[in-house]
Computed example of a mutant assay.
Amino acid sequence: MTSPSHPIYEKLKALNITLPDVAAPAAAYLPFMQTGNLVYLSGHLPKRDGKVITGQLGKNTSTEEGKAAARAVAIDLLGTLQAAAGGDLSRVKRIVKLMSLVNSTADFTDHHLVTNGASELLADVLGEAGKHARSAFGVAQIPLGACVEIELIAELA
């Protein structure tokens, strides 16, 4: 891990965020895969106290609850990204793309606002390097009933 005085780690400390270890995959996939300078992170589900945050936006989960869940996913993604970067988030040159799947009813249309929970945290922690292209989709269901699943592509130095 890089020096705790690096701005990324200072920001995490200021936000009272401790990055988790990489979670073991729940199925037949890897948590991340690197090709060249790009690293692809598999979809991550939101967790609270080790349990998946479930719900369906537009039915039993509010936009603000979904946004908080997306923020929780971004913290887990940063933990996985740190592992992919050899323990050093200062190697992250930029977050290239975020894809967010939101478990929602057919009439829910605020997927972009839910996904802001992840986008805002990444930009807050990584600064300009955290700003990214993204997609946000509504889907009928997500594994384990999670309210959101997010994957990420980053460029490493």
Rank of each mutant, 00 (worst) to 15 (best):
I8A: 10
I8G: 08
I8E: 08
Y9M: 14
Y9I: 12
Y9E: 14
E10Q: 15
E10G: 01
E10I: 05
E10W: 00
E10D: 12
E10V: 12
E10R: 13
E10K: 13
E10F: 00
K11Y: 01
K11V: 01
L12V: 05
K13G: 04
K13N: 06
K13S: 11
K13F: 01
K13R: 11
K13W: 01
A14I: 04
A14S: 15
L15E: 14
L15H: 03
N16V: 10
I17H: 02
I17Q: 08
I17L: 12
I17T: 04
T18Y: 00
L19P: 07
L19D: 08
L19W: 05
P20D: 10
P20L: 08
P20R: 07
D21Y: 01
D21E: 11
D21I: 06
D21V: 06
V22L: 01
V22R: 06
A23Q: 12
A23P: 15
A24C: 06
A24V: 13
A24R: 11
P25G: 02
P25L: 00
A26E: 15
A26M: 14
A27L: 09
A27W: 09
A27C: 09
A27N: 08
A27Y: 08
A28Y: 03
A28N: 14
A28F: 05
Y29P: 09
Y29M: 13
Y29R: 10
Y29T: 09
L30M: 11
L30G: 08
L30R: 11
P31D: 09
P31Y: 05
P31T: 07
P31G: 06
F32D: 05
F32L: 10
F32C: 08
F32A: 10
F32K: 04
Q34H: 05
Q34C: 12
Q34G: 11
Q34L: 10
T35G: 00
T35H: 04
T35L: 03
G36S: 09
G36Y: 09
G36W: 09
G36L: 12
G36H: 11
G36K: 11
G36A: 06
N37K: 15
N37H: 14
L38M: 05
L38G: 00
L38H: 03
L38Y: 01
L38V: 08
L38E: 11
L38I: 12
L38C: 00
L38D: 01
L38S: 03
V39E: 07
V39D: 01
Y40G: 03
Y40A: 12
Y40M: 14
Y40D: 12
L41I: 12
L41H: 00
L41T: 02
S42P: 14
S42T: 14
S42V: 09
G43W: 09
G43H: 03
G43V: 03
G43F: 12
H44V: 10
H44K: 03
H44W: 02
H44N: 03
L45Q: 05
L45C: 01
L45H: 01
L45K: 02
L45P: 05
K47I: 11
K47V: 12
R48M: 06
R48H: 04
D49L: 04
G50Y: 02
G50R: 04
G50Q: 08
G50A: 04
K51Q: 07
K51I: 06
K51T: 04
V52F: 01
V52W: 02
V52P: 15
V52H: 02
V52E: 09
V52C: 04
